[in-house]
Amino acid sequence: FSITQFVRNLGLEHLMDIFEREQITLRVLVEMGHKELKEIGINAYGHREKLIKGVERLI
């Protein structure tokens, strides 16, 4: 299971460039909250919320 699959499953594949540029893996994403996601350029609250909720389902 990769970050690419995870992001695609959430319908947020347009954010993949950010994850690749910042070298974010699923392991790193698990540790990130709204503040960190915003810092790397994910400005939409809804997108950040989707990512965080998606990660919570993985754990």
Rank of each mutant, 00 (worst) to 15 (best):
residue 11 G to K: 08
residue 24 I to P: 02
residue 5 Q to K: 10
residue 19 F to W: 02
residue 2 S to T: 15
residue 27 R to V: 09
residue 30 V to W: 07
residue 45 Y to L: 10
residue 4 T to L: 15
residue 46 G to R: 15
residue 49 E to S: 09
residue 4 T to S: 13
residue 20 E to A: 11
residue 58 L to H: 07
residue 25 T to F: 03
residue 22 E to T: 07
residue 19 F to Q: 00
residue 4 T to I: 12
residue 5 Q to H: 11
residue 54 G to Y: 06
residue 7 V to M: 12
residue 40 I to R: 04
residue 28 V to I: 13
residue 52 I to C: 05
residue 2 S to F: 09
residue 10 L to A: 04
residue 35 K to N: 10
residue 10 L to C: 06
residue 35 K to P: 09
residue 19 F to C: 03
residue 14 H to I: 12
residue 56 E to P: 04
residue 31 E to S: 15
residue 30 V to C: 13
residue 24 I to M: 07
residue 28 V to S: 12
residue 23 Q to S: 12
residue 20 E to H: 11
residue 20 E to P: 03
residue 13 E to P: 09
residue 51 L to R: 00
residue 18 I to G: 01
residue 55 V to N: 01
residue 46 G to Q: 15
residue 8 R to S: 11
residue 54 G to V: 05
residue 28 V to K: 15
residue 2 S to C: 14
residue 55 V to G: 06
residue 40 I to H: 04
residue 29 L to N: 00
residue 15 L to D: 00
residue 43 N to I: 15
residue 14 H to L: 11
residue 43 N to G: 11
residue 7 V to Y: 03
residue 58 L to I: 09
residue 17 D to S: 13
residue 56 E to K: 15
residue 47 H to I: 15
residue 22 E to P: 03
residue 13 E to T: 10
residue 9 N to Y: 13
residue 56 E to A: 14
residue 39 E to M: 12
residue 13 E to I: 10
residue 12 L to T: 01
residue 21 R to M: 06
residue 12 L to S: 00
residue 40 I to L: 11
residue 3 I to T: 05
residue 42 I to H: 02
residue 10 L to H: 02
residue 16 M to S: 10
residue 35 K to D: 11
residue 48 R to L: 09
residue 56 E to R: 15
residue 27 R to C: 15
residue 38 K to C: 09
residue 16 M to T: 10
residue 48 R to S: 03
residue 54 G to T: 05
residue 53 K to M: 10
residue 18 I to H: 05
residue 56 E to C: 12
residue 7 V to T: 07
residue 14 H to C: 14
residue 39 E to Q: 13
residue 1 F to L: 13
residue 10 L to P: 00
residue 20 E to D: 11
residue 41 G to A: 03
residue 20 E to M: 12
residue 40 I to D: 00
residue 41 G to K: 05
residue 28 V to C: 13
residue 12 L to C: 05
residue 46 G to K: 14
residue 13 E to C: 14
residue 44 A to C: 15
residue 58 L to C: 08
residue 57 R to T: 10
residue 59 I to E: 07
residue 59 I to R: 10
residue 41 G to D: 03
residue 3 I to W: 06
residue 35 K to A: 10
residue 8 R to K: 14
residue 22 E to F: 09
residue 42 I to R: 03
residue 17 D to H: 15
residue 10 L to R: 01
residue 11 G to Q: 08
residue 36 E to V: 04
residue 23 Q to N: 14
residue 29 L to G: 01
residue 12 L to K: 00
residue 6 F to V: 05
residue 17 D to E: 14
residue 57 R to V: 09
residue 34 H to L: 05
residue 5 Q to W: 09
residue 9 N to A: 15
residue 46 G to N: 14
residue 56 E to L: 14
residue 13 E to Q: 11
residue 26 L to N: 01
residue 4 T to V: 13
residue 22 E to A: 10
residue 31 E to L: 14
residue 56 E to I: 11
residue 36 E to W: 06
residue 40 I to Q: 02
residue 2 S to V: 08
residue 42 I to P: 02
residue 39 E to L: 10
residue 16 M to V: 14
residue 54 G to P: 01
residue 20 E to Q: 12
residue 17 D to Y: 15
residue 20 E to N: 13
residue 49 E to P: 02
residue 32 M to A: 04
residue 18 I to W: 03
residue 53 K to R: 13
residue 2 S to E: 11
residue 42 I to W: 02
residue 54 G to C: 08
residue 56 E to V: 10
residue 16 M to W: 07
residue 25 T to G: 06
residue 17 D to M: 12
residue 29 L to M: 06
residue 8 R to C: 09
residue 15 L to M: 05
residue 51 L to V: 09
residue 14 H to P: 07
residue 5 Q to M: 12
residue 26 L to R: 02
residue 42 I to G: 01
residue 32 M to S: 04
residue 3 I to S: 02
residue 52 I to K: 04
residue 15 L to R: 00
residue 46 G to Y: 15
residue 40 I to T: 02
residue 33 G to F: 03
residue 58 L to S: 04
residue 14 H to T: 10
residue 15 L to S: 01
residue 56 E to H: 12
residue 44 A to P: 07
residue 4 T to G: 13
residue 43 N to Q: 12
residue 58 L to P: 01
residue 9 N to F: 11
residue 27 R to P: 11
residue 45 Y to R: 11
residue 17 D to G: 13
residue 50 K to Y: 04
residue 35 K to H: 09
residue 50 K to S: 09
residue 50 K to M: 13
residue 23 Q to F: 08
residue 1 F to H: 09
residue 33 G to V: 03
residue 34 H to G: 03
residue 49 E to G: 04
residue 39 E to P: 01
residue 27 R to F: 09
residue 40 I to M: 08
residue 27 R to I: 10
residue 18 I to Y: 06
residue 51 L to Y: 01
residue 45 Y to G: 05
residue 26 L to Y: 07
residue 19 F to Y: 02
residue 59 I to P: 07
residue 47 H to G: 03
residue 44 A to D: 15
residue 58 L to K: 03
residue 8 R to W: 08
residue 22 E to W: 07
residue 33 G to H: 06
residue 8 R to N: 07
residue 3 I to Q: 01
residue 58 L to N: 03
residue 45 Y to E: 09
residue 34 H to P: 03
residue 19 F to R: 00
residue 32 M to W: 07
residue 2 S to M: 08
residue 24 I to R: 02
residue 30 V to A: 14
residue 6 F to P: 00
residue 19 F to N: 00
residue 22 E to C: 10
residue 24 I to T: 05
residue 32 M to F: 07
residue 31 E to R: 15
residue 22 E to M: 07
residue 59 I to K: 13
residue 36 E to S: 05
residue 25 T to D: 09
residue 8 R to Q: 11
residue 25 T to Y: 04
residue 36 E to L: 04
residue 57 R to G: 08
residue 36 E to M: 05
residue 18 I to D: 02
residue 50 K to D: 06
residue 50 K to R: 12
residue 37 L to C: 02
residue 48 R to H: 02
residue 1 F to N: 09
residue 31 E to I: 10
residue 22 E to G: 07
residue 42 I to A: 02
residue 47 H to M: 12
residue 12 L to P: 01
residue 55 V to T: 07
residue 53 K to F: 06
residue 9 N to E: 14
residue 23 Q to L: 07
residue 6 F to S: 00
residue 56 E to F: 08
residue 27 R to K: 14
residue 56 E to G: 09
residue 49 E to H: 10
residue 46 G to A: 15
residue 19 F to D: 00
residue 1 F to M: 14
residue 57 R to Y: 10
residue 48 R to W: 06
residue 5 Q to F: 08
residue 42 I to T: 01
residue 17 D to I: 13
residue 36 E to I: 04
residue 55 V to M: 10
residue 47 H to L: 09
residue 12 L to R: 01
residue 22 E to N: 15
residue 3 I to M: 13
residue 20 E to L: 13
residue 38 K to I: 13
residue 45 Y to V: 10
residue 3 I to D: 01
residue 23 Q to E: 08
residue 47 H to R: 03
residue 52 I to G: 00
residue 32 M to G: 01
residue 10 L to E: 03
residue 28 V to F: 08
residue 46 G to S: 15
residue 43 N to R: 11
residue 37 L to H: 02
residue 33 G to P: 01
residue 37 L to E: 01
residue 1 F to W: 11
residue 9 N to T: 13
residue 9 N to H: 12
residue 31 E to D: 14
residue 3 I to N: 00
residue 45 Y to I: 10
residue 41 G to H: 03
residue 7 V to E: 00
residue 36 E to Q: 08
residue 38 K to S: 09
residue 54 G to M: 06
residue 41 G to Y: 04
residue 1 F to S: 10
residue 41 G to N: 03
residue 39 E to S: 12
residue 19 F to L: 07
residue 59 I to H: 09
residue 1 F to Y: 11
residue 17 D to N: 11
residue 7 V to S: 03
residue 41 G to I: 04
residue 51 L to D: 00
residue 11 G to S: 06
residue 25 T to P: 05
residue 35 K to W: 06
residue 52 I to F: 02
residue 13 E to W: 10
residue 34 H to M: 04
residue 31 E to A: 14
residue 43 N to D: 14
residue 38 K to Q: 12
residue 59 I to L: 11
residue 43 N to M: 14
residue 48 R to C: 08
residue 31 E to T: 15
residue 16 M to R: 07
residue 16 M to C: 09
residue 34 H to N: 03
residue 33 G to E: 02
residue 4 T to R: 15
residue 14 H to M: 13
residue 20 E to S: 10
residue 24 I to S: 01
residue 15 L to W: 04
residue 6 F to T: 01
residue 37 L to W: 05
residue 53 K to D: 06
residue 47 H to E: 15
residue 33 G to R: 08
residue 45 Y to S: 07
residue 42 I to V: 11
residue 25 T to W: 04
residue 13 E to F: 11
residue 46 G to W: 15
residue 26 L to D: 01
residue 13 E to H: 09
residue 59 I to Y: 10
residue 47 H to A: 15
residue 27 R to Y: 09
residue 16 M to A: 12
residue 15 L to A: 02
residue 52 I to A: 01
residue 28 V to M: 15
residue 8 R to G: 07
residue 52 I to L: 14
residue 25 T to H: 05
residue 41 G to L: 04
residue 15 L to P: 00
residue 37 L to I: 03
residue 30 V to P: 05
residue 52 I to D: 00
residue 46 G to E: 15
residue 34 H to A: 03
residue 18 I to E: 01
residue 51 L to K: 01
residue 15 L to V: 06
residue 42 I to Y: 00
residue 34 H to V: 03
residue 48 R to D: 03
residue 21 R to Y: 06
residue 5 Q to R: 09
residue 31 E to C: 14
residue 3 I to P: 02
residue 23 Q to D: 08
residue 55 V to L: 11
residue 18 I to A: 04
residue 38 K to F: 09
residue 54 G to F: 05
residue 10 L to G: 02
residue 7 V to R: 01
residue 4 T to P: 07
residue 32 M to R: 02
residue 35 K to T: 09
residue 25 T to V: 05
residue 37 L to S: 00
